[in-house]
């Protein structure tokens, strides 16, 4: 519907405004939309929208965790997704003009679209449940977090993850850099996502 499209568009602008207007270098922003499962009554956070900025040293980080087999798999999935969106049959591997390697952070952002959090699970769920921001800075802290998503983020090169509860869901910010908690960005996110504009 046009309403859904309008909301989707404003979400994108807000996420972009958070990332591009921040003093720090954030790699991505995701809005996890809150809802209640009609069948079970469970609280659910699922993908609402995301903005991927990337990181300046994408190329350098590229070979961090991914093997040749990983890259083959990622490229194949991307070709299939491109085909799903465009409606055209997927090109053969050697016919694809755009066949750049898929970075770890791109891949993490992409797989995030399929994730969801039930009843306060994960860092986004915890932020929603406690109505307070969850901020994890440092690869070692992410790696040892009691949250599968945080550990996965670290494995894909993310060093900082912040989850900020807002009206209707949670805004998650991720960065390949080390960013310590600051009230400026949490305040900005809250302002952007509660203004209703």
């Amino acid at each position: 519907s046009s309403t859904a499209c309008f909301n989707q568009e404003t979400l994108q602008y807000r996420l972009q405004a958070v990332i591009e207007g921040a003093r720090e270098s954030w790699t991505y922003a995701i809005f996890w939309q809150s809802s209640v499962d009609a069948a079970t009554g469970a609280s659910l956070l699922a993908w609402g929208d995301g903005y991927y900025r990337g990181c300046d040293d994408d190329k350098r980080k590229l070979r961090g965790a991914s093997t040749a087999a990983d890259q083959e798999h990622r490229k194949r999935v991307l070709r299939e997704l491109n085909s799903l969106i465009s409606g055209a049959p997927p090109p053969a591997a050697d016919e694809d003009a755009v066949d750049e390697e898929v970075t770890d952070t791109e891949w993490f952002f992409l797989v995030s679209m399929a994730q969801s959090f039930v009843d306060g699970a994960g860092l986004p769920g915890h932020a929603l449940l406690t109505a307070s921001a969850a901020w994890v800075a440092g690869a070692d802290r992410l790696a040892s977090a009691a949250c599968e998503r945080a550990r996965q983020a670290q494995a894909f090169g993310i060093q900082t993850m912040a989850c900020i509860p807002v009206g209707g869901g949670v805004v998650e910010l991720g960065s390949t850099g080390l960013i310590y908690h600051n009230a400026e960005i949490t305040g900005k996110v809250r302002a952007l996502f509660t203004s209703g504009t």
Binding site: Q8, Q33, A46, V98, L110
Partner: peptide, 26 residues
């Protein structure tokens, strides 16, 4: 493709389009 929820599909389309732009301008 009907199984792909609309929000994810819109985000995915945007991500792929921007990625194509990034790659071709690099």
């Amino acid at each position: 493709s009907r199984a792909v929820p609309q929000a994810r599909k819109a985000s995915l389309a945007r991500f792929l389009e921007k990625r194509k732009e990034r790659v071709t301008s690099a």
